[in-house]
């Protein structure tokens, strides 16, 4: 079972391009549909918890599913499986990267890629805003956070802590009603 957990998550880690969210459908098809390790409803709960916990989404899900199946050792096997493929691939890329970057065509390619990556990040702001179910009023926190980081060089860690506290305090003061659960 431990080896099985390792292999399933190594397979998922090896075949999903584009990071965490791209891995979710693959994790679902492996652990829910093919292996029947987890029920569909439980999978959705695990996804929700993994999204609300710090760290890489895929690693959070691997740890959770591994723990469900085989305790702490299961969690360790699953997370190592999820890490291993990208670790090995990036290690190889990093080893040759400097040499590779001396090739003129590669430098030119990356001159073109850098603005495209900036566009990808800008687009991800929009995507995350759309999927986060944020009420219009609360966007003030987004604006304040961005301004503090860009213009005042405030530590993002501080922003996460303060915004979480603000949410708790505003909620407590009755800024939100019962049953108003997002």
């Amino acid at each position: 079972m431990l080896f099985d957990l390792f292999m399933v998550f190594a397979k998922i880690g090896a075949f999903t391009l584009g990071g965490g969210y791209a891995m979710v459908p693959l994790i679902q098809s492996e652990v829910v549909d093919r292996k029947s390790w987890i029920e569909k409803e439980e999978f959705i709960d695990i996804l929700a918890v993994s999204q609300s916990t710090p760290g890489a989404l895929a690693l959070n899900m691997a740890t959770f599913i591994g723990y469900k199946k085989k305790g702490i050792l299961g969690a360790a096997s699953a997370i190592l499986g999820a890490i291993m493929p990208s670790f090995l691939i990036i290690l190889i890329v990093a080893m040759f990267f400097t040499k590779f970057m001396n090739v003129k065509a590669v430098q030119e390619a990356f001159m073109g890629i850098r603005p495209a990556v900036a566009a990808l990040i800008a687009f991800s702001v929009y995507k995350i805003a759309m999927t986060s179910k944020i009420k219009p009023m609360w966007y003030i926190i987004a604006v304040i956070s961005a301004v503090l980081v860009i213009f005042f060089d405030v530590d993002p860690i501080l922003i996460i802590i303060v915004s979480g506290l603000s949410g708790a305090v505003i909620g407590k003061l009755g800024g939100t009603k019962d049953g108003d659960n997002n």
Binding site: V125, I128, I141, A146
Partner: peptide, 27 residues
């Protein structure tokens, strides 16, 4: 739930800040 109601928009703002600085440096 209240804590996350505060954190979610902050995360959007933080990524927007990252997008801003990467864009300024890359374009």
């Amino acid at each position: 739930k209240n804590v996350f109601r505060g954190i979610r928009p902050a995360v959007v703002g933080l990524i927007a800040a990252a997008a801003y600085s990467v864009t300024v440096e890359s374009v």
